[in-house]
């Protein structure tokens, strides 16, 4: 068994950090998860040899640390705009609807050929910006569902939240992201 040298370790660290950041969408939490992973790895060097590669082994440890971190993030106190009524009603988007619950004058427009945007660097910059506007918890649940393809039950289990809460967070993410992209990206193009 050979231990990774400093340069390899730095590469692993970068890789693990990107991996964690994408799943946690929180820099501090991602840093911490990676630190914990490397610490755990050092303490359990014996696990090294048996694994197909150090990277796989480290990623395996990191996955557990990420689940812990996700739970912790989800337990942080709610920000004001994240409060949800017990019946799961979301009132933060009420301004978009009229008194009868129909779209006002500013309803969703037609986005012309949106998939072409996926090829454009500028689109991804805006996509990131729009994602950053989501609260941590909302962004986390959206990433778990849509980027990583978790089922609702798995998200509820990992984060220890209810299905209603989960579906409210996903609704909020979709409403916010579409509004942000329409205002800042697709609006100019249609």
């Amino acid at each position: 068994m050979t231990l990774p040298d400093d340069q390899q370790l730095a590469e692993f660290r970068d890789y693990l950090l990107r991996y964690a950041l994408y799943r946690l969408r929180d820099e501090a939490a991602a840093e911490e998860a990676v630190q914990d992973t490397l610490l755990a790895a050092l303490q359990a060097k014996s696990g090294f040899g048996a694994q197909s590669s150090v990277k796989t082994w480290l990623t395996g440890i990191l996955k557990h640390k990420i689940i812990d971190a996700q739970r912790k993030l989800c337990r942080e106190p709610l920000q004001i705009d994240e409060r949800v009524d017990s019946d799961g009603d979301v009132s933060d988007f009420d301004g978009l609807f009229d008194k009868t619950g129909h779209w006002g004058s500013d309803g969703p427009r037609t986005w012309a050929n949106p998939d072409a945007s996926l090829e454009q660097q500028d689109f991804w910059r805006m996509y990131e910006k729009c994602n950053e506007r989501l609260t941590k918890r909302t962004a986390l649940v959206f990433a778990m569902r849509e980027s990583l393809g978790y089922e609702i039950e798995e998200i509820c289990q990992n984060l220890e939240i209810t299905a209603t809460n989960c579906s409210v967070l996903l609704y909020r993410a979709r409403m916010s992201l579409r509004l942000c992209l329409e205002k800042n990206w697709f609006g100019e193009r249609s």
């Binding site: 969703p108 427009r109 986005w111 996926l118 849509e146 980027s147 393809g149 979709r174 579409r178 329409e182």
Partner: peptide, 26 residues
Amino acid sequence: ICDYCRNFSKQGNFLRRAAQSANKRK
């Protein structure tokens, strides 16, 4: 009967494709 909501529905599907392709890019 509702164009707005039909657009919303298409946009929801698009957000899914975008999130998946963001994942691939990363």
